[in-house]
């Protein structure tokens, strides 16, 4: 016999005029290796087919299923119930617009973020069909991949003090993205151009250094290091003109 689990799940369907925000309670018996993916799917199919949540790859790869699990943002697909007490409270991620129940609109938020930071290689070159690729050191390729592993799940944004207070804060995810492109020799943006994007309170100077982002990142991306490096670089960029002796 497994434990009897009790799920307290936030419910609200904005498209249903009869719906008001509330909590519903569901029970089920715990099984071996039960994940929140299996549990929520079971609840939907056996108990309440209107329950809204998002899963896609169910393997911790696509970032669809982030939610607040007993007060902490995380990926539901890879959360095992045996790591939780038998009372489990599930809430949708804050900051993102609610679609219904545990489902939030991360797509719109991340599209805006990607537009804002110019999340692509900025280059004046043209692709030459037939030409051999430009060389890159493998160690550098691996460093870029380290930061490229972000899955835009939204956990860092939901756990961020600043993002919860100001709508325009771009979040650790955007800072990490900028760090990724700054490291990439194919991107021709200068420090001044990056400063234009994130050298503000919406960007790196809005970060309060609470670093919950790093704590909750399901891909263990070194966000703390990236935030530190960017803050130093952007800080220096803001004051470096003071040190241009003889250029008066």
């Amino acid at each position: 016999m497994g434990r009897e689990l009790t799920f307290h799940i936030f419910r609200y369907n904005p498209e249903d005029p009869d719906s008001a925000p509330h909590t519903d309670t569901f029970s089920m018996e715990e099984r071996e290796n039960l994940t929140l993916f299996i549990a929520l799917t079971h609840i939907r199919e056996e108990q309440d087919p209107s329950l809204q949540f998002d899963f896609c790859c169910r393997a911790g790869i696509c970032g669809s299923c982030a939610m607040v699990i007993n007060g902490r943002p995380g990926l539901a697909c890879k959360t095992l119930t045996r790591e939780l007490p038998k009372e489990i409270t599930l809430m949708p991620l804050p900051v993102f617009r609610l679609i219904g129940d545990l489902s939030v609109d991360t797509g719109t938020w991340f599209r805006v973020m990607n537009e804002k930071v110019g999340s692509w290689i900025h280059t004046s070159k043209e692709f030459k069909p037939g030409a051999r690729e430009e060389r890159m050191d493998n160690a550098l390729a691996e460093e870029i991949y380290e930061l490229e592993r972000c899955i835009e799940c939204g956990c860092c944004v939901a756990s961020c003090g600043t993002a919860n207070m100001r709508e325009d804060f771009v979040g650790a995810v955007a800072m990490n993205r900028i760090a990724r492109f700054m490291m990439d020799p194919r991107d021709e943006r200068t420090a001044d151009e990056y400063f234009e994007v994130i050298g503000t309170d919406e960007g790196i100077f809005g970060c309060m250094g609470l670093l919950a982002c790093e704590d909750v990142c399901p891909k263990n991306i070194p966000l703390q290091d990236q935030l530190g490096i960017l803050r130093r670089k952007m800080g220096w960029n803001a004051v470096k003109h003071l040190f241009r002796f003889g250029s008066l």
Partner: peptide
Amino acid sequence: PEAVREMAFWGIPWNRVV
């Protein structure tokens, strides 16, 4: 081959020959 190189041009951090 051209398609892989084009993706490199667009930013893929392909693993490289050591």
